[in-house]
């Protein structure tokens, strides 16, 4: 009856099988994911891009902020924030489900899969979603004329990088959570909310008093936005700062994943 007998070996790079399951899971919400990917940018662009943008160009002129139109100015920030949001959703909910709601991680872990494989697979799944969201978002930005500089496309990989680094940190964070109500409150009110408001998303960070600029400094969104503005329209930053931005996100990514891999394993084998 069997085609061949099961080999009973430990599969190499187990995370890809977890990724396969995550993609199947996401496909059940395919249209929701697509709708969010489309509506999110549309709402932002219509309300803030056009609304606030018009206000700005009426008052300051078409070279509104930083020597470019307001849409061009906010495009890299919007892209990065959508990447961060997408990565976070696709990391936090599966992790809560895996450890607590449906306990699916415990099922995965009774196969050769390890905690690190499972964490890695969830992370990769979130990256698939992030790439999709950023892809859709950038097409819409393009249609709105917000990707008009020759190097605009560079904002795409930068945004994905930001999603990856924030996703990694949230994966680590979520893997410690036992009380999700409190977790969602903390994340929503004290992390994500302030991050969008204080990361130089809608106006240059240095407009803010120095004390509040601190939020930008610890926010991957600000680092990605600065890089994105530099790459897309030549926003002036020093070479050293380019290094700092890249390094900051790289450290978040690596440290986040490392902690997540360890904590997944620990929590699964308690």
């Amino acid at each position: 009856m069997s085609v061949t007998r099961s080999e009973r070996k430990v599969p190499k790079f187990g995370a890809r099988y977890i990724l396969e399951a995550r993609i199947r899971g996401m496909m059940k919400f395919f249209w929701v994911i697509v709708a969010v990917a489309i509506l999110n940018p549309l709402l932002y662009l219509i309300s803030i891009g056009l609304g606030v943008g018009t206000l700005i160009s009426n008052n300051i002129g078409p070279q509104g902020i930083d020597g470019v139109s307001y849409l061009t100015f906010i495009a890299p920030a919007l892209l990065a924030s959508s990447a961060i949001q997408g990565a976070m959703d696709e990391v936090v909910f599966p992790t809560m489900d895996g450890f607590k709601w449906g306990k699916v991680f415990f099922g995965m872990n009774s196969t050769p899969q390890t905690g690190a494989d499972i964490a890695g697979g969830v992370f990769l799944g979130a990256m698939v979603r992030t790439v999709l969201s950023v892809g859709v978002y950038s097409v819409i930005l393009y249609l709105f004329g917000a990707m008009d500089s020759p190097h605009s496309y560079l904002a795409v990989p930068i945004a994905i990088f930001a999603g990856a680094s924030f996703g990694a940190v949230m994966l680590a964070f979520a893997s410690y959570v036992h009380n999700e109500d409190m977790f969602f409150t903390i994340v929503g009110r004290f992390i994500v909310g302030p991050m969008f408001l204080f990361s130089g998303t809608f106006y240059p960070l240095d407009t803010l008093p120095i004390a509040l600029q601190f939020f930008g400094w610890i926010s991957p969104l600000w680092h990605a936005t600065e890089l994105g503005r530099y790459a897309t329209y030549g926003h002036s930053i020093s070479g050293a700062m380019i290094g700092v931005h890249i390094l900051f996100m790289a450290v978040m990514l690596v440290v986040g994943l490392k902690i997540a891999f360890r904590q997944f394993q620990k929590r699964l084998t308690k």
Binding site: M1, S6, P11, G14, E20, T111
Partner: peptide, 15 residues
Amino acid sequence: IYGRYFGLPSKFIKS
């Protein structure tokens, strides 16, 4: 998917 976690080939699992 459970079979996949063991790294088993799709064809084998489907059978």
